[in-house]
Every structure is written in structure tokens, then in C-alpha cells.
């Protein structure tokens, strides 16, 4: 007891530098923009003033001009997250369940290589691929899929492709870890009890991997909402996202009050969607669980779709 009391003081002290540092350069700056967001832009040359306090900047951020971009960003991020999920799920499942154990480490490292190489340069790589002078644009125009070689770049579609590409590793990795932790004995038990491969996947493997899927969705959706580089490189004027909007308030319009309000709206909107998505996934999981729970004593009514198979195994 005496030792523990003596230990606690130095222990806490060790974390103090990091705590102070993050407070001074993360928490306080954030509080400052929260304060700015309640002010206004005073005249042509000022960037911010809190002489008059109001929520008018928030009303401005929700005005149709800006809110269309918020809606487009939300739509692109939701769609991008769903596409990432669909692309990553089979790949992560294959890597964790089908690839021999000694080769898995190499595949995980390969997924991480793009993630740890420069985000900006990878996005520029897509700019090269999609550019009107590129091989792809030439081919698609010759085949007739695209009318004009300039149609690929500087579109919402190009930004969406960039978003999916840039955040895909963040979806694959947590899913891989989740599938990797699923005990293969449970899948075998499910098969021994007469469940088919598809039923085993959807009723045993997938529910067990759910934490990894939720982690992947959150890890991908949050940075997509706040992305600034991808629309700047691939979007041109048509592919603007909230990140570009906030940046222009700070770098060109010099309206710090409005830019701050937009940043706060972005964070609140992202949090709201994440909470909604988690609740939704929880409810779906609960419904599935309730439908397939084990009933001891009385015999559950047979599922008509599985009737034939159950008769066959009996």
C-alpha cells in the first residue's frame, strides 16, 4: 500500500508534459475557434470580431449556398464508406480465413504500404491516371464510354474514387484483425450442427467480426467527411467538399468567424452520423440476435426456407 501511494505521484507527473502540450496546441486553439464562431467578420480588412455575439454564423453555414456542399459531402462520405465496406469485406475475409498463416503478415504489410506513403502523392497518382492526356481517358473515349477525355477529372466521381482509394486500407485493417480473431472452431461447430457455409458466414463469422466492421466504418467515415486534399487535387470546381469550403474562408475570404462555425458544424454533423450509424448497427445486430437465439425447452418453429436442409440432415 505504501509503495503504491509513493508510485502514484511520479506516474501522473510523467503524463503531464504531453497533457500540457496537447492542451496548449489542440484544446485551447479549438476553444478559440469555438469562440470566434459566435462573432462576425468586421468590415473588409478584419478577419474576426467578437464585439457582437450571435449565432448568425451558424445560420449562414446552414444557408442554401453552403449547405448544398455539406449535403454533397455527407452523401459522398456515406457512399464512399459503403463502397469501402463492400470492397474490403471479401478481401479482409480472404486474407484472414483463407490465406496460409505464414503469408498473412506480408499481405497486411502490403495493405499498409499505400497507407504510409504520402497521401497527397497517391492522390496525384490518380490525377495522372484520370487526366485527359492519360491512357485511360484515351481508351474510354475510343470505346465510347466517355464523350470527352476531359470528363474524368474534376468531377464528383473523381473525388469519390479518390476518397474510396485513400481510406480503403483503414477499412481493410480492422476488419482483417476482427476476422483473424474469430475462432475457426466456432465455424466448424456451426458446420457440424448442419449450417451451410453461407449461413455460417452470416450467423456466426460476421456477427463475431462486427466490432472490426464498426471500427472500420468509423475510421473511414470521419476522415472522409473532413477531407481537404482529395477534392483539392481531383475535384476542381465541381467536386468541392466542406474541407475546401472551410479552407477558403480562412485562406481567401478571411472570414474566420464563418469558417470556424463551419468547422464546428462539420464536427457536430460527423458525430451525429457516427452515433446514428452505431445505433443502427446495434439495433440490426440485436434484431438478428433475437431472431436466431437459442431456445431451450420448446422447439422453435422451423424456418420454411431451411426446411428441406433440416429434413435432410435429420
Amino acid at each position: 500500500m505504501r509503495d503504491r501511494a509513493a508510485k502514484r505521484l511520479p506516474g501522473f507527473v510523467l503524463a503531464v508534459p504531453a497533457w500540457l502540450w496537447l492542451t496548449a496546441f489542440f484544446v485551447v486553439p479549438f476553444l478559440q475557434i469555438a469562440w470566434f464562431s459566435l462573432g462576425e467578420k468586421p468590415g473588409m480588412f478584419g478577419s474576426h470580431s467578437n464585439a457582437v455575439m450571435s449565432l448568425d454564423r451558424y445560420a449562414e453555414a446552414f444557408s442554401p449556398t453552403f449547405f448544398t456542399i455539406f449535403r454533397a459531402t455527407l452523401w459522398m462520405s456515406v457512399l464512399g464508406t459503403i463502397v469501402c465496406l463492400v470492397i474490403a469485406l471479401p478481401a479482409a475475409y480472404f486474407m484472414a480465413m483463407k490465406v496460409p498463416a505464414h503469408r498473412r503478415g506480408l499481405l497486411v504489410a502490403l495493405v499498409m504500404v499505400p497507407y504510409w506513403t504520402s497521401f497527397l502523392i497517391r492522390t496525384i497518382g490518380w490525377k495522372v491516371i484520370l487526366s485527359s492526356e492519360g491512357v485511360l481517358a484515351g481508351f474510354l473515349t475510343d470505346v465510347g464510354l466517355v464523350a470527352d477525355p476531359h470528363d474524368l477529372l474534376n468531377t464528383r466521381g473523381a473525388v469519390l474514387l479518390g476518397l474510396i482509394y485513400n481510406y480503403l486500407p483503414l477499412m481493410i485493417l480492422p476488419m482483417y484483425v476482427a476476422f483473424d480473431r474469430v475462432d475457426s472452431a466456432l465455424g466448424e461447430a456451426s458446420k457440424d450442427l448442419g449450417a451451410g457455409r453461407i449461413r455460417t458466414f452470416f450467423q456466426v463469422t460476421l456477427p463475431l467480426a462486427r466490432p472490426g466492421i464498426i471500427a472500420g466504418v468509423i475510421l473511414v467515415f470521419i476522415p472522409m467527411m473532413g477531407d481537404y486534399v482529395t477534392p483539392a487535387v481531383l475535384g476542381g470546381a465541381k467536386g468541392t467538399m466542406v474541407g475546401s469550403l472551410i479552407a477558403s474562408q480562412f485562406l481567401t475570404a478571411q472570414n474566420w468567424a464563418l469558417g470556424s462555425a463551419m468547422a464546428i458544424v462539420l464536427i457536430l454533423l460527423t458525430m451525429l452520423i457516427v452515433i446514428l450509424a452505431i445505433t443502427l448497427m446495434w439495433v440490426v445486430g440485436w434484431l438478428v440476435h433475437r431472431r436466431s437465439r437459442l431456445v431451450v425447452g420448446t422447439v422453435p418453429p422451423p424456418d420454411p426456407r431451411l426446411h428441406n436442409k433440416e429434413v435432410a440432415t435429420a
Binding site: 475557434i33 474576426h48 474541407g243 472551410i246
Partner: peptide, 11 residues
């Protein structure tokens, strides 16, 4: 999001 860190650090 990094953009929020960036615009908060500038002022």
C-alpha cells in the same frame, strides 16, 4: 479531422 487542427492552429 486535420483541417480542424489546421484552421484552429492558424489563429
Amino acid at each position: 479531422p486535420e483541417i480542424v487542427d489546421g484552421i484552429a492552429l492558424l489563429p
